[in-house]
Design a protein around this nucleic acid. Structure first.
Lengths: 233, 233
DNA sequence: CATCCACGTGTACGTTGTACACGGCGGATT
DNA sequence: AATCCGCCGTGTACAACGTACACGTGGATG
């Protein structure tokens, strides 16, 4: 019930709203949150709007905003020139880098169809890398999705790892082990799960696993390569 | 503000509440929903409770309920006897079946640490299948996670495929193609994404892809096998 | 018979996405 | 120059969600 006189007539609205500004703000918010979560209210606040409703004129809905965010990240992924293997390998590595920058992207990629312009361009390049082989349409797309599935799956695992690490507020591996310690110790004393326990008590469990993203990617490429019948390359 | 007289003194509460009944009800609800979503209110209604708060005495929180649901499904996965490859292959196939029954499980598996009794038992069996090789702890777990990562990644893709299919309310592939048709046609006319368009307009794109779950699983097992140095088997 | 406690309930709060109608500014039209 | 129209940001409002809290009741226990 404040008096009209106190109102400033034209709050000097910071800058024109736009789809680009909104998407950029949403991405910044998602990047800053371990879980990568975004609320319309938070985005509105960041673009200087006083109400979440202002966003709806530009992005339609929260799902629409999610689609736009995802497509932006699709645009960060590239397929390098070269033979099919160089192309798909580069796709995997470049996707992995993008997913490490934006782990929330893995969740969106799994939950929204990739129909934005950047996504289509990426699929187009990836399919182009398989030109020159006599492949059925399903097989061609299957090869691309095999690689991308690995990228997004690894991304989700990364998202969860970071979230779990922060849930207990512990950055280092040693602290993490300490948090799970009492539970594991109880299990150990009960004598069940002996193989699991042996793993859990082995300090070497924190070593970098040889089944790295890249190693598995190469296994997949080996498998794809075995199914390729060359026609001209 | 209804009068007391109308109240029935003891609503013949259907049956005793219990953690098992609650988890079972939640799983039924998740199975019945394409997105696999569950609300505390829906679970409460299904177990015959008049308020969601009754559940909290048994499951602690919604995340707790999710953990219990996930562990129940971990219990449906088994590692068959045999050599390492039979074990891990069976793990993958049995996991894939469980994930097809409960696609929401893939999401939970990615977003909650597998510390329930069934999950631990499963990891224990899987690690046991790798006994007899001189593997570091990280490498051993990495092999198991390679297989499970494939299972859960494929499960998430399945979840999204089913959800997208119902979003437009179309069960058949032809209808699905019809829904995306106008959009694809516009793209086609603009002449961009030629390789993608060629795929989209190829009826063979609906063929079963040769990169099936099982095929990729075998590729991964090939890769794992190449890293194993046998000690006694 | 008195006591206690495990249980299910009802009420209530904060947060979320978003529907809807309004006021005001700028540019096009007359 | 006066008028209108359409775009834009705003405020209010609501339904659904997870869940904190305090209460009554009934059966087991002393």
């Amino acid at each position: 019930m404040s008096l009209v006189w106190f109102d400033v007539p034209a709050p000097p609205r910071g800058e024109q709203l736009s789809r680009e500004r909104i998407v950029a703000a949403a991405i910044e918010i998602a990047d800053a949150d371990v879980r990568g979560e975004v609320t319309m209210r938070a985005v509105a606040a960041r673009v200087g709007s006083s109400t979440p409703m202002s966003l709806y004129r530009y992005v339609g809905s929260k799902d629409g905003l999610a689609d736009l965010m995802a497509d932006e990240v699709y645009g960060e992924i590239t397929v390098p020139p070269g033979d099919w293997r160089a192309g798909l390998r580069g796709l995997g590595l470049s996707g992995w880098e993008a997913v490490q920058r934006h782990p929330w992207f893995a969740r969106l990629a799994f939950s929204r169809p990739p129909l934005g312009p950047h996504a289509l361009a990426l699929y187009d390049s990836a399919l182009a890398a398989l030109d020159g082989f006599e492949l059925g349409a399903a097989e061609r797309m299957g090869a691309v999705n095999t690689v991308l599935g690995h990228v997004f799956g690894s991304g989700l695992a990364l998202l969860e790892e970071r979230a779990m690490r922060q849930r207990a507020g512990l950055p280092t591996d040693e602290d993490l082990a300490g948090a799970a310690g009492p539970y594991l110790q109880r299990i150990t004393e009960e004598g069940r799960y002996p193989h699991f326990i042996r793993w859990a008590n082995d300090p070497a469990r924190l070593d970098p696993a040889p089944q790295s993203f890249e190693r598995i990617l190469d296994w997949l490429l080996d498998g794809i390569g075995a199914t390729l019948v060359t026609a001209q390359g």
